[in-house]
Design a protein around this nucleic acid. Structure first.
Lengths: 144, 144
DNA sequence: AATACCGGCTTGTATAATGCAAGTAACTTT
DNA sequence: AAAGTTACTTGCATTATACAAGCCGGTATT
């Protein structure tokens, strides 16, 4: 006696994609885990450092680019764009000729503070010798 | 009358490197900011997700690889290696034939919990519909 | 005894992200 | 008029990530 079987093989990633889309949730990038969602926006070498600077009071391109980690100009521009589209940062013109923008955190961005604070606490413990940056003092232009 | 000048141009990154090395601090990768130090270890798409799983009680390769974000096998292997060399994860043999390891967080890794908790809080607020994963229940082999 | 299967990776290759230097547009200063 | 400044953009090299397939040391099945 013979048995006959037909095995249909679907690529797993496509199956997962379809399963995700068929649920009436907003489609998540990797999973519906809040940590995964957060890391889809924040999970890279630079984004949280830019947010650190903005939390410390830096506002302008020049202030951000001069941070000691020496971010490349194209990366900074790219991250500011991405942070804007994800609603973490908003830009605001501070002069017209030439048109220049300041960057500030939205509520969504401000709410990242506890994450940065937790990173500071961990970093201070396990990287002794590291020093926490102070709040950025904005020099008004008429002082020397 | 003629003026003569010799201008020597050094590449800025080399200058910075030398300046850093001349200070008697432990050499930091990007800066001595604790956040930058932390992100040098944790700042990518996958590392903190693996740590989430370990904090939830997962221990083995197979448990880690089956997480819903579908990390690639080579990335998981690479991250486990890096996490071990940075002292966040330790591996421990749980059988000899064939030799197999379990991965567990060290104290340094456990101390990342507040960071993950902060990420969860932020993610829950700004990605409604996301759901927090429950602690991984380890099935003992003699239970069905 | 041979074949299939499983867990835990490694390898090869394609695509995407990052890093670096240089260039550009619209001004201001010398 | 020439040089400098700010806020970027562009081109290209290097590095990281993604995906599929393969491999190794075992156990289970036929």
């Amino acid at each position: 006696m013979y048995y006959s079987a037909t095995v249909i093989v679907y690529p797993l990633n496509k199956v997962h994609e379809l399963m995700n889309n068929n649920l009436d949730k907003p489609t998540f990038e990797r999973s519906c885990c809040p940590i995964a969602c957060a890391l889809d926006q924040l999970g890279d070498k630079w984004t949280l450092l830019i947010i650190r600077d903005l939390l410390l009071g830096k506002k302008r391109y020049q202030e951000l680019i001069t941070s000691p980690e020496r971010i490349a100009t194209n990366i900074l521009a790219d991250r500011l764009k991405k942070l804007e589209t994800s609603g973490i940062v908003a830009q605001q013109a501070y002069q017209q000729k030439p048109l220049r923008y300041e960057y500030r955190l939205t509520r969504k961005g401000e709410d990242l503070r506890p994450i940065l604070e937790a990173l500071v606490e961990w970093g201070k413990i396990y990287y002794p010798g590291s020093v926490v940056f102070k709040s950025h003092e904005h020099r008004s232009s008429d002082e020397s």
